[in-house]
Amino acid sequence: MSNNESSVPRPTSVLTVAALTMLEAIAVLVYAANYLLHLSDEGNLNMGGRIFMLVLCLAAGAWQVSVSLNFFKGKAFTRAPIIVWQLFQLILSFSFMQGPFTGVAIAAIVVAAVTIVMLFAPKTTAFLGDRPQS
């Protein structure tokens, strides 16, 4: 059941997940823009590899925007990509705990944890049509 035409208001948990996934998408797109600005800098990859990484970052950001918007609309199928993204984010964040990016890593872990908890909140699953409305 899709809630596109439903008169049921969106619960706070749905708004929270949609906002956090959009924030993550914007972060990926900002990183891609920064990567584009430094595309000609010296590095370990040749130009073909750098362009591939840029396209990959842009595609990931666009995909995340799409997932966020469709989740906001009440599409239940978006739960799987959101979970995969959060697990990927958790794995990468723990690898950045040592070094200068510890604060960013902790923030990413908190965002992923809140997103996962809110994604399976009873009001969220009811909104997505997995449970009866209460």
Rank of each mutant, 00 (worst) to 15 (best):
N4K: 13
S6V: 14
S6Y: 10
S7D: 09
V8H: 06
P9N: 14
R10H: 03
P11I: 15
T12V: 11
T12H: 01
S13E: 05
L15C: 12
T16W: 05
T16Y: 06
V17I: 07
A18F: 02
L20G: 04
E24A: 02
E24Y: 00
A25I: 03
I26R: 02
A27I: 09
A27H: 01
A27Q: 03
A27P: 00
V30A: 15
Y31P: 00
A33V: 11
N34D: 15
Y35A: 14
L36T: 09
L37V: 05
H38Y: 09
L39H: 10
L39Y: 06
L39I: 15
L39P: 02
L39E: 13
D41H: 07
D41C: 05
E42T: 15
G43T: 13
N44W: 08
L45S: 14
M47K: 08
G49R: 14
G49K: 14
R50A: 14
R50Q: 15
F52D: 14
M53V: 11
V55H: 08
A60N: 04
G61V: 05
G61S: 02
A62M: 03
A62S: 04
W63A: 11
W63K: 03
W63I: 10
W63G: 08
V65N: 04
S66Y: 00
S66M: 06
L69I: 02
F71E: 04
G74W: 02
A76C: 02
T78A: 06
T78I: 03
P81S: 07
P81A: 05
P81N: 07
V84D: 03
Q89N: 07
L92N: 13
F94G: 12
F94C: 12
S95G: 05
S95T: 08
S95E: 05
F96L: 15
M97K: 04
M97C: 07
Q98K: 07
G99Y: 07
T102W: 08
G103P: 01
G103E: 11
V104G: 13
V104N: 06
A107K: 01
A108L: 08
A108R: 02
V111W: 00
A112W: 00
A112T: 01
V114N: 08
V114G: 07
T115I: 02
I116R: 03
V117W: 07
M118Y: 04
M118V: 02
A121M: 11
A121R: 05
P122W: 12
P122A: 15
T125W: 02
L128I: 05
D130F: 03
R131F: 05
P132L: 08
Q133G: 01
Q133M: 10
S134I: 08
